[in-house]
Amino acid sequence: MIALLDYDSGNIRSVEKALRKVGADVERVRTPAAMQNAEAVVLPGVGAFDDCIGALQRQELLAATREWILADRPFLGICVGYQALFERSEEFNSCAAGLAVFGGRVVRFHKSPGLKIPQIGWNQVRITQPDCPLYRGIPDGAYFYFVHSFYPAPTDESLVATRTDYGDDFASSIWRGNLFATQFHPEKSQENGLRLLRNFVEFSASRG
């Protein structure tokens, strides 16, 4: 079973449907206790960093998620679920501390003439770790759907699985052991996104 952390994130339904589409046995999970039987955890997220961290904290999912990750159990973070892994965000008025699993901050795209922020639409990923299980069968330069103004800047360069160019050349996804996280939305990225989710589901099953 894949535990989809349910803290009322806006994209939970889409992520749930996409995981089902690729054959996953998904359960919405609202408590740490319900996570324990899972073979993998998916942390979705859209919107403001502090709201997401706050909601996770209220449901006591924050500490449980951190423990899950530190035990190197299969994990996928999406969008703010990716950003939450870092120390803190530069988002306006943000004061929440992230999971701090990795060093680095969540930063805003640097302003430059003609660059629209948020980035909204389909952009390409440059796969920097070709053996990353998430990208099996997905070509270098594949398009995914992005909708964000902020992105994590990991201090540990070796985490980076893909890079994407939008004014800044940023880490559009990361991989470490059994953990994966993407800034883009696989659940909204048609064939490429479904392939990525299927890869994650199969990877998790192989670890189970």
Partner: peptide, 8 residues
């Protein structure tokens, strides 16, 4: 925007 983020 405050509740759901400017991006939406």
């Amino acid at each position: 925007a405050e509740k759901y983020g400017s991006q939406c």
